[in-house]
Design a protein around this nucleic acid. Sequence first.
DNA 1: CGCTATGTTGATCCATATCAATAAGTGTGG
DNA 2: CCACACTTATTGATATGGATCAACATAGCG
Lengths: 232, 232
Amino acid sequence: MAEAQLSDVRDLDLFCAMADEHFETLMRASYVQTFPPRIELIQEGDLSDFLHIVLTGSVELFSTWNGRETSMATVRPVSTFILAATVRNSPYLMSARTLEKSRVVLIPSQDIRTAFDMDLGFARAIVSELAQCYRAVIKNTKDLKLRSSLERLANYLIREQHRAGGRTAFQLPYDKRRLASFLGMTPENLSRAFKSLQDYGVEVDGARITIADQPRIERFAKPDRLIDDYSV
Amino acid sequence: MAEAQLSDVRDLDLFCAMADEHFETLMRASYVQTFPPRIELIQEGDLSDFLHIVLTGSVELFSTWNGRETSMATVRPVSTFILAATVRNSPYLMSARTLEKSRVVLIPSQDIRTAFDMDLGFARAIVSELAQCYRAVIKNTKDLKLRSSLERLANYLIREQHRAGGRTAFQLPYDKRRLASFLGMTPENLSRAFKSLQDYGVEVDGARITIADQPRIERFAKPDRLIDDYSV
DNA sequence: CGCTATGTTGATCCATATCAATAAGTGTGG
DNA sequence: CCACACTTATTGATATGGATCAACATAGCG
């Protein structure tokens, strides 16, 4: 693995408290691979052999049932995914596919479990990461059950704006079809929802969003730290 | 704490691998309290001071936003709740109220974190528990996003039947109003959904449900281990 | 034994899905 | 480098699942 990438991994919350020796052992056991777009990295139901880390590109987590499919999350660099399946040694509950050309680290699940037992800092980090993932999904459930699709979109845009550094204009990070699925709505309904938000000072030009009237959209969206704050 | 209750706690997955000494320290720092029905034990947004364990009775986890409320889960004996907030030392994302008279153990969050650092068996159990909680919420999200309300009800009934030992007849564990909210629907809609399921051989008499034609309801519900199996 | 909360049923409304047609990109191979 | 195919996005028309409103029934409970 290239030096720069290695240090990106090292800097992850999950690894930064780990002893050098243990980290190096883990990395020696790992693989780095570059995948083209739209490659299925993981199929739900498969047994968890590796913890995955996205170095570059992006990966979509999605699930299917009875011929239907829904987008569950998008993983962006640099972060891990399917940690829960790894530590429980259980089948994946979600599938994963690259959205674009992506570089991914694969760490054998067994080595993760071994490192957990040997390194208290790493153990603490795993717990912290898992708890954060849990809380993120709870927030997502609240978003889904307590808000209408228009409210979900409005709050999503406010969160994305925040993630883009708070600028009034920013780009949607992936296509609208996926966004619709992530927000639990159809592409047609998303398209109409964007139009409705024009009344609240949101301008849409393709993937470029401009929040022209911040107080107005926030008055409508009512963002809540117990749903929308990533840090809490 | 009474001997029988203490051993119930000891037998929890979370504590059973823990050294005696550490478990006793934890229990000495804890409180046991009995609460009447409909008491709010936790308010979302409050800081997490205690890990809670339900010994008897039952506790509802719910969330609110903008004047709306939704039921997130029901905790039944003997299990813990809000472990994630405890380990992250963060505000609760859900409120909790007793549904009936309930006996609850309160373990100071700080003692949990101390025990984590001293006892590898406990650390492993916490990780395992958190990962399981995470996976439960993911399953719930898949249920919500991939299924109609009728399908959610049908699968819920099949799961409850399983939990009741697989008998054809069983009781709903709490009132229909809460069940509706948990399933993400209105009480009126739930009432009609129950009527619709009569066509699939489900008989409803108050809180008593009879699955008269198991293959029929399963053909409709299409239960899936990656959504409905608690053990996976 | 009434009172209040819960559950049911009917009528209606609304948010969102579905179906259909078109437009606009986007990538590929000739 | 362009033409074609294919996917994505938009828009309109319509259908429908589920919500809301209202009335009534029922059942715990003080």
